[in-house]
Nucleic acid binder design. Structure first.
Lengths: 241, 241
DNA sequence: ACCTGAACACCGTTCAAGT
DNA sequence: ACCTGAACACCGTTCAAGT
């Protein structure tokens, strides 16, 4: 379901500048990995390709279409090889593969999840695979699609947050603020946080100043997979409405 | 832990243009609600305030600082009134309140989750409350912080995706593409999706062309809350490592 | 079919200057 | 302390023109 597609199925007479859809796409992913969403510019991409900025518009009519294609490229082949009929390994493998894709290209985390366009990225085979897994897990039909939504949002939610973008380059000030706030936690007002603040500082959500590229949340991720699978089991097989 | 703070605790002699931090913040949230992140411009905000664009920089040194403050403002007072010792209603209420905040200001969904800066937004009381809830649920100490990460990412993940931003204003083309793709699902290659495609079209993740503001995912959200709570229960009390 | 080149209507941010 | 006003170095996108 790609947008910005060219139909020309005819012979291509070796374009003068050697540009084509895949070349632009590869360069775009390289640029995004290198500079992040803020630095990702049509003009910077053109510089990288050695062409005029407007040349890119022949292949992608808008910057958003190009970014959507990049997301689609990164998220291709997410479905695990395991048989969906063995639903637990299938779901766990899916989550793991999604996370690995985000780890390889952390800057796309900001473009997924919070953007509906990226939905067009994911292939129908993956959707069918998840539905198959849930059906074989014994999910009743009237809960199937709710369970599906839980799987999708859980798959994307954790990794999106783990690799959340850092603020601009003047990090130092905000890092100092974070450190100070964590160090100054009041023992009587926030006793639990006070007790755990050294273990939590920069290692858990809401108290980090680095993201998953430098400080992975492995324990949290494993817990997340276990929680979703155990919770789905209960949700699918619990009696009452 | 706000950034871009002014220290001047002294008397303020009624600024000529009537500008101050709260006025700017309110106008910023109003502008964001009205036009979304793409239209959110320092110059547009200045127009709305009747001042020069550069005036805003007196209160917020960078656009990012202003956006972080807007996120912080929207996410204030998330902690439910219920006692964290009753951990299930506490977690469920927390998720519900987070979702309601996103529903009130859907455009901030794109700014949370995928952005580390927004972390500075959330107050320490909320973190302490979640930790208290998990401790009173009987979570063993060595699993406490992993469970905490599951709670945070689950709280933010679903709502962020439910209110994910739509593409630009030329929706029609991409909506037609989505409709066509859903209608053309192959019955033999994707049997489950084929069977469910009418029920899923525009109503579930990955197959939507509208977001939660017009098509809420109520069933999915309720399932998500149930799954996380039941899954946490299992994770916290399961014996083996 | 594919790319150049100029041009339009914008941006965020800096900085000196005013009051 | 707070705001104006000009200026800098950029943007995405359009459109006519070339080959």
């Amino acid at each position: 379901m790609g947008s910005g597609e060219r139909k020309s199925a005819g012979k291509r007479p070796a374009a003068p500048a050697g540009l084509n859809r895949d070349v632009v796409l590869d360069a775009a992913l390289g640029l995004l990995d290198a500079v992040g969403p803020d630095g990702f510019t049509m003009r910077a991409l053109a510089r990288r390709l050695g062409v005029y900025p407007t040349s890119i518009y022949w292949y992608f009519p808008r910057k958003n279409d190009l970014l959507a294609a990049v997301v689609a490229h990164v998220l291709r082949d997410l479905a695990p090889e395991t048989d969906p009929r063995d639903w637990r390994p299938f779901i766990a493998g899916l989550f793991r593969r999604y996370r690995e894709a985000m780890r390889r290209h952390p800057h796309v985390a900001a473009l997924t999840g919070a953007n509906l366009v990226s939905n067009a990225a994911v292939d129908l085979a993956l959707i069918d695979g998840i539905l198959a897994a849930l059906v074989h897990a014994g999910c009743p039909d009237e809960r199937l699609l709710a369970a599906f939504d839980v799987v999708i949002s859980s798959m994307a939610g954790f990794a999106t947050m783990e690799f959340a973008a850092l603020p601009g380059e003047d990090q130092s000030a905000w890092v100092d603020d974070m450190r100070a706030a964590v160090a100054a936690v009041d023992a009587t007002r926030h006793p639990h946080l006070h007790r755990l603040r050294d273990r939590m500082a920069n290692r858990h959500f809401m108290l980090r100043w680095e993201n998953g590229t430098t400080v992975p949340l492995d324990a949290g991720f494993d817990a997340h997979v276990a929680v979703v699978i155990a919770g789905l089991e209960a949700f699918m097989h619990h009696q009452e409405s």
